[in-house]
C-alpha cells in the first residue's frame, strides 16, 4: 500500500479538508476581524474601531444576563438529563421481555428537530387549551402559565430539552453498563456485597468514563441552545435569552454584526476549551483501546 500513494492520498483527504477550512477556519478569523469593526448586516462602509465593541460588552447587562441564563440552563439540563438517563439505563440494564422495542421508542425524541418540536410544545404547554394544564385541572391542581410567566419560561424550555436529550444520556449509560464484565458482579455476590456497595464500587466507577463523555458532549451542545429558545419565546426575551439568542438578536434583528462578532468570541472561547477537553479525553480512550487490542 505504500507504493505510489504520494498524490493519491492527498486526493482522498484533500477535498474534505479544503471544505472544512473554508467553512470553519476562515469564518473564525473573519469573525475576529469583524469584532474590531463597526460592520452592519446591511453592508456599507466598514471601519476599524479598535476594541470599542469589547468595551461595550462589559456595560451591556444583556450580555451578563445571557451568560447567567446559559450557564444555569446548561448546568440544570445536563444534571437532570444525566440523572434521569442513568436511572433509565439501570432499569433497562438486564434483559427482559420488550426491552429492545422499549429502548428504541425511548430514543426517538433525540432524533427529532428541536425547532419543530419546540413549536409544537407551545401547543402542549399553552395556558388555555394546552393538554398539560387541562390534565392538571382534572386533578384540581394549580395550572401554571408555562409560556408567559417570566419565572417559568426558562423552566419550560428546560423541560423540553430534558424530554429530547435524556435518551442520549440513557443510550451512552447503557453502553457503559453493558461493558461491565459479569464476573465482577458474580464475585461481588460471592462476597455478599450489598446492592449499594455493588453500585458504588463496581457500577458507578466502571460507567463513569462514558458518562463523562456524555456530559461533555451534552454540555457543548446545550451551550449552543438556540432552537428551543426561538420556538418558545423568540430571541429577545429577558428571561430566556441564551448567548446564541442574544447573538441572533444583535446581529440579525439589530444588524450590528461587528458588535455581535465580539460577543461571539467569548462563546467561541468557552466552546473551544470544552471541545479540547473532549478531544483529549477521546485521545486517551483511543490510546487505551489501542493498548488493549495490541
Amino acid at each position: 500500500m505504500r507504493v505510489k500513494d504520494g498524490i493519491l492520498k492527498y486526493g482522498f483527504v484533500g477535498p474534505a479538508l479544503i471544505f472544512l477550512i473554508a467553512f470553519n477556519i476562515f469564518p473564525l478569523f473573519y469573525n475576529i476581524y469583524l469584532s474590531f469593526t463597526d460592520a452592519e448586516l446591511s453592508g456599507g462602509a466598514t471601519q476599524l474601531i479598535g476594541g470599542r465593541n469589547y468595551g461595550v460588552i462589559f456595560d451591556d447587562t444583556r450580555y451578563s444576563t445571557a451568560l447567567r441564563t446559559t450557564g444555569l440552563f446548561v448546568v440544570l439540563a445536563v444534571a437532570v438529563e444525566l440523572l434521569l438517563g442513568f436511572a433509565l439505563a439501570l432499569a433497562l440494564q438486564k434483559p427482559f421481555w420488550g426491552k429492545p422495542i422499549i429502548t428504541t421508542i425511548l430514543l426517538v425524541p433525540m432524533m427529532l428537530s428541536p425547532a419543530v418540536m419546540g413549536l409544537y410544545w407551545n401547543f402542549i404547554l399553552n395556558g388555555h387549551y394546552g393538554v398539560v394544564n387541562q390534565a392538571l385541572s382534572v386533578f384540581g391542581l394549580f395550572q401554571p402559565q408555562w409560556l408567559t410567566d417570566p419565572d417559568l419560561k426558562l423552566f419550560s424550555i428546560l423541560m423540553i430539552d430534558i424530554w429530547m436529550w435524556t435518551p442520549f444520556m440513557m443510550l451512552i449509560a447503557l453502553a457503559g453498563l453493558n461493558a461491565i464484565p459479569n464476573h465482577l458482579y458474580e464475585a461481588a455476590a460471592i462476597d455478599r456485597a450489598s446492592r449499594w456497595t455493588i453500585f458504588r464500587r463496581i457500577t458507578l466507577p466502571l460507567c463513569s468514563p462514558l458518562l463523562f463523555l456524555a456530559v461533555l458532549l451534552r454540555t457543548t451542545d446545550a451551550l449552543k441552545q438556540f432552537d428551543l429558545v426561538m420556538a418558545v419565546t423568540g430571541p429577545n426575551d429577558r428571561a430566556t435569552q441564551t448567548l446564541s439568542a442574544l447573538l441572533y438578536q444583535v446581529m440579525f434583528r439589530g444588524y450590528k454584526i461587528g458588535l455581535g462578532s465580539s460577543y461571539s468570541i467569548v462563546i467561541l472561547l468557552i466552546v473551544i476549551a470544552l471541545a479540547s477537553i473532549f478531544i483529549r479525553y477521546i485521545a486517551s480512550i483511543q490510546a487505551k483501546q489501542g493498548r488493549e487490542s495490541a
Partner: peptide, 8 residues
C-alpha cells in the same frame, strides 16, 4: 455554535 460562524 452556528450563530458564531454564520455571519462570515
Amino acid at each position: 455554535p452556528p450563530l458564531a460562524v454564520v455571519v462570515p
